[in-house]
């Protein structure tokens, strides 16, 4: 069993759903990004998803598009993202998972990337543009030692969910909505029936739900059909406001606290 799966199982056995917080590497401020990540982890996040900035993030809505664009403009490369992971790892044992698109990895070289990623102490990677069909071509044995997390969506049928669960390591990322990342105004935009169906069919792995979750209340309502949640846009949005209003990490950490409290059951 991988460190990621064991970690999730351990928290679940302590009556807690796992809270994974997404940050775009180097956003909003490249200079205090490590402080930000550590504050978020100390403030209640159980796990960090570290976004590798990319110029054309297809699966992302406006909030993460913006943070990704800003990070690219700030000169944050894939190498710099790995360096952040390394620095964060020095101060925490909580899991760190990269989230990124294939092109920067291909450009760096799969072998160089996977070696550096493993050496940094990161535990896994989420690649939204590598579906099941491309897994074997892209995920070479160089990835051994790094959990590759696959995604299900409300359009995945039961057979696919089973295949995805079988290939995925660390956990299965269940996308809650039909659409890109970003906060949803109405809870009924979540595809609850599909989430339930996915949870019933993900047997090998633990399952975390992501996309659209922005409040503690969302987590409470989803808690029976998952082992944890991933929150991205809502946090990046709070960060953007903190940055604009020069309020440090106040709004961001208050959101993380709310989300974290909702994860205890």
């Amino acid at each position: 069993m991988s460190y990621l799966s064991e970690y999730i199982a351990k928290l679940n056995s302590q009556n807690r759903k796992v809270l994974s917080i997404y940050l775009t590497a180097g956003f909003p401020d490249p200079d205090n990004f490590v402080d930000l990540a550590l504050s978020v982890l100390e403030g209640g996040a159980d796990k960090l998803e570290l976004g590798i900035p990319f110029s054309d993030p297809l699966a992302d809505g406006p909030v993460i598009q913006h943070s990704s664009y800003q990070a690219v403009m700030n000169g944050i490369t894939i190498q710099k993202t790995i360096e952040y992971a390394e620095q964060i790892r020095k101060h925490t044992d909580k899991p760190i998972v990269f989230m990124g698109y294939t092109n920067p990895i291909l450009s760096m070289g799969v072998k160089s990337f996977t070696e550096a990623a493993k050496a940094s102490g990161a535990n896994g990677i989420i690649l939204p543009d590598v579906p099941f069909e491309e897994y074997d071509d892209f995920i070479t044995e160089d990835f051994d030692g790094l959990d590759v997390i696959l995604l299900t969506t409300p359009t995945s049928g039961v057979d696919r969910i089973k295949k995805i669960d079988n290939k995925s390591n660390g956990f299965v990322y269940c996308v809650s909505v039909v659409g890109t990342t970003g906060m949803r105004k109405n809870f009924n935009e979540f595809s609850l029936d599909r989430i339930k169906l996915t949870y019933q069919n993900v047997k090998k792995n633990k399952m975390l739900i992501g996309f659209g979750i922005s409040k503690g209340e969302d987590i409470k309502r989803l808690s029976e059909t998952c082992d944890g949640v991933l929150v991205g846009s809502a946090v990046v949005n709070a960060l953007t406001e903190d940055h604009k209003n020069k309020t440090g990490f106040t709004k961001t950490l208050s959101l993380v606290k709310e989300l974290s409290e909702a994860c205890n059951f």
């Binding site: 590598v130 579906p131 099941f132 069909e133 491309e134 969506t153 995945s156 995805i164």
Partner: peptide, 12 residues
């Protein structure tokens, strides 16, 4: 070539 797209589109 190939199909490097989000899972949501694979069905379509």
């Amino acid at each position: 070539g190939g199909k490097y797209v989000p899972e949501t589109l694979m069905n379509a």
